[in-house]
Write a protein that binds this DNA or RNA. Structure first.
Lengths: 337, 337
DNA sequence: CGATGCATTGTTAGCGATAACAAGATCGGC
DNA sequence: GCCGATCTTGTTATCGCTAACAATGCATCG
């Protein structure tokens, strides 16, 4: 029975061809030191000849760990999370890890817990949770210990390893830029109240104002959408005293710009605007938007480094990395009339 | 030695507690018909009591298949691919599959092949490749047979199962909308020439023009970026005869709008613009953008359905699904002056 | 020159599940 | 009441790999 089913070759096939035991093949694959150079080459040749590729499932079964990193994120096309995810995948691939994405519809405790459990089933080597709201963080309370975990944009007060963008510093940058241009005060259209990102930006904005001895105007609440920026703009455009606005993200700024445009308030002549995120299109808003750029790539890399440190070194030292944003000057800021 | 290491319970633990063999537990888990109701309940209770969750790696090892679907996509924050990915994850999760993302930096043959191989290592149950350019498609030529595969946005002429958005129909919609408003002809700022999406939109635009007996103006080439739209706008704004422009995506339209605004060409009074994609912000451009909406959710669902059909039914009938886009009317189109 | 130790390789035993087969229990038909 | 068919359950082998230990060879040292 010469069945010519091209079953993909296993380790024993390689071993037979190379004239060694399967264990030696395993050693070559895992870069064990004690293998004679000549043997190593012979095994490598056999691997190449057969086109052998190790079976991850078998390895995962015996080691209890996979080369898989789970990422839990909200299923959204928000620019921030999407960029983060893309950057993270890239970084993980470079480190030889595959990324399994468990997107959740909402960031409530139950959804997050479910996504986490699904990943645990797969014996992921580590877990990254993008947890920008308190409810997401809560879900991680009763995580089984021993699973490497990094949260991104999580609660700074928790003990996990985490990576955060210094939202307050970014907001301060934006606010101070407007103050420096000569504005008496700066209004703020915020993100959803339960997001840490939004809270941090509010905090930085308020602190910058207070430090400068400027009046703190009432907060204009919004969500992250352009629509909420538009609504805010409809209101702010009616108040002649408003000469400077800092929005919690660029899309809100876009909505705001449109509302101002409709009501004849010229940007930056009548009112200056600063956004947050530096989406690729921000340079093409009317006018080009001055904004704050959080380094998503840096966040992703830092997150991966922290995770890999936990995975390899077994240290669960809850380290944290804070990424400082930078200000990108464009044309939406000018001195008040 | 009562080591209280909370090793996660295995099937034998459940079996012992329920007083049955591990095989019976396996049967309960896999919904085999021949298990007495009473036994089934006892096993279920034991599973619940121990918080048992099956080991995917072990199952994958013995069956040769995992509950993992691999998605190969370009690592990008382009709105289209990102939306597609998000929608797909959602759909897969509902069907009980995890999604492993293999993002590639570039869509060349080598990158794609590498990502595909990495997924094959993991014994994915199926593979979805978002292959909007020819080089990506080429890489799939020498795929090992027997792996369920669906391409999205791939070459319509290939024999794979695939899901495509009818780009030509969308472009036709846009072009005809402009023609119907009374414009003599419509200019087109295209996407990168090697993308099928871009090619399809060009084709639809040209066909609509020819069908209407309108002159076909020279094509203005671009990539997907807002910058390329801006550059195109700088040029088009200088030509008084240009009264209607169809851009290959919304971000290009944004750049175009800014260029027109800078040069004092009013939209839609002087020139009408239609985009493609319906990004969430399109309603807040100045003016709100009339655009074409491809149903990303529908694409993702169709792709998953096709894949699941192949996975379960073993049929490798190369089916194909074509999703028709719709036109979203806003305020960037008006009759010519 | 035999003992000692390290480098190298092989042997054996699982990891936790499913598949294939075997065996006991139950049931209907004559 | 006996026989074969069917339902239910258990036993054993196996997937492809790594861990632990055993065995071999060779150099070093007193």
């Amino acid at each position: 029975m010469d069945v010519r089913v091209t079953r993909s070759p296993a380790m024993t096939d390689v071993a037979r061809l190379a004239g060694v035991s399967h264990q030696t093949v395993s050693r070559v694959l895992n870069d064990h030191p004690n293998v004679r150079e000549q043997t190593r080459l012979r095994v490598r040749a056999a691997i190449a000849e057969l086109g052998y590729r190790p079976n991850r499932a078998a390895r995962a079964l015996v080691t209890g760990k996979s080369q898989l990193i789970g990422v839990v994120a909200q299923n959204s096309t928000l620019y921030g999370p999407a960029s983060l995810l893309a950057a993270f995948e890239q970084a993980a691939a470079e480190a030889g890890f595959a990324v399994s994405v468990g997107s959740v519809g909402r960031l409530d405790r139950e959804s997050i817990a479910g996504a986490v459990e699904r990943h645990l089933d797969q014996r992921v080597a580590g877990l990254v949770v993008i947890a920008p709201v308190a409810s997401a963080d809560d879900a991680l309370e009763d995580m089984p210990a021993g699973v490497p975990l990094v949260t991104i944009d999580g609660d700074p007060r928790r003990a996990h390893a985490l990576v955060i963008v210094d939202q307050a510093a970014g907001a301060r940058l934006a606010t101070e830029r407007l103050l420096a241009a000569g504005h008496r005060t700066v209004w703020h259209v915020s993100g959803p109240a339960d997001w840490y990102d939004a809270a941090g930006r509010i905090e930085g904005w308020r602190a910058a104002l207070e430090d400068a001895g400027a009046e703190v105007p009432p907060l204009v609440p919004g969500d992250w959408s352009a629509a909420s920026g538009y609504d805010a703009g409809q209101m702010l455009a009616r108040m002649p005293e408003v000469t400077a606005v800092f929005t919690a993200n660029d899309h809100q700024a876009l909505g705001l710009l449109r509302a101002f445009s409709e009501r004849g308030r010229k940007v930056p002549e009548d009112v200056s605007v600063v956004g947050f995120d530096d989406v690729p299109e921000a340079a093409f808003f009317i006018p080009p938007l001055t904004t704050v750029r959080p380094a998503f790539g840096a966040v992703a890399h830092a997150g991966l480094d922290l995770l890999l440190a936990q995975i390899t070194a077994e240290t669960t030292t809850p380290e944290r990395v804070v990424i400082a944003p930078t200000l990108v000057d464009r044309a939406s800021v000018a001195p008040p009339a």
